[in-house]
Amino acid sequence: MTTPTLPRRFYKTVDIAPVETGFAVRLDKATPKTPAKKPLVLPTEAAARLVADEWEAQTETIDPFAMPVTRLVNVALDRAGETRHAMVGEIVKYAGTDLVCYRATTPASLVAAQAAAWDPLLQWAEAQLGVQLVTTTQALAIDQPADALARIEAAAHALDDLRLTALAFANGLAGSAIVALALIHRHIDGETAFRAIRVEEDWQAERWGRDPDEEKIANARRVDLIAAERLVSAL
């Protein structure tokens, strides 16, 4: 497979500036556009600075995969308004088969590791969102309470476009609406979210070692979860 050629860095300076709708990222004093040609403007100075720092970190070429916050912002600005219903629907779909609800029966050490990582998240969801999901040790999918899924849907719809995009992104990475919601509501950080979705993999690695290729893929997921956390924390 041919590696795509990255565009060369075409700008010398990066800064941010206040504008009527928030804070604009600027390259050589001009505001860049998203893929859909919308100005790269964020609602807070801190969020604009995060994006600006990613542009500044580019060297001779521009690598979009090294700019996870910028990618999230582009999606939020370009697509969240039009695809909000679909994004929320996908989050609810994941909640119906949420990772944290499917538990091992043996060995005892894995059962304990899952409980330690996941039970507090379910308790938080019940206390803060009124969401009470059912756990199981069955391999087959179970039906979750309609009220719980409706509450998750309402919680997602209540978010602005940037936070909803971060939630949908984290949801897909985690395979868990509960982990994603805890992250977006800043109950946990990106590293904790990553460890929560890696309970079984970490348990196996402690016994049989880690696979370098798999670890590389996992680390990319970790970076993206931390990016979602950083964006939400800056809003």
Rank of each mutant, 00 (worst) to 15 (best):
M1A: 13
T2C: 01
T3K: 09
P7G: 10
P7I: 09
R8D: 05
A17S: 13
A17N: 14
V19R: 11
G22Y: 14
A24C: 14
D28Q: 13
K29F: 06
K33G: 00
P35E: 09
P39L: 03
P39D: 09
P39Y: 04
L40G: 00
A48E: 01
L50Q: 10
L50F: 06
E54K: 01
E54T: 00
Q58H: 09
I62S: 13
I62C: 15
D63H: 10
P64Q: 07
P68F: 07
T70W: 08
A76I: 14
R79G: 01
R79K: 15
A80G: 11
T83I: 07
G89L: 06
V92M: 03
Y94T: 12
Y94M: 11
L99G: 11
L99P: 10
V100C: 12
T106Y: 12
L110M: 11
A112D: 12
A115H: 12
A115Y: 03
W118Q: 01
L122M: 14
L122F: 04
Q123A: 14
Q128V: 03
Q132A: 08
L133D: 00
L133G: 02
T136R: 03
T137N: 07
Q138N: 13
Q138F: 04
A139L: 15
L140F: 00
I142F: 08
I142Y: 06
Q144W: 02
A148D: 06
L149R: 09
A150W: 01
I152L: 04
I152W: 06
E153H: 07
A154L: 12
A154W: 09
A158I: 04
A158D: 15
D160N: 15
D161K: 04
L162K: 07
T165E: 02
L167Y: 12
A168N: 15
A177G: 02
I178S: 03
L183D: 01
L183K: 02
I188F: 12
F194Q: 07
I197E: 08
R198S: 15
V199K: 02
V199G: 08
W203F: 15
A205K: 12
W208K: 11
A218I: 06
A218H: 08
A220S: 11
L225N: 01
R230D: 12
L235K: 05
L235M: 13
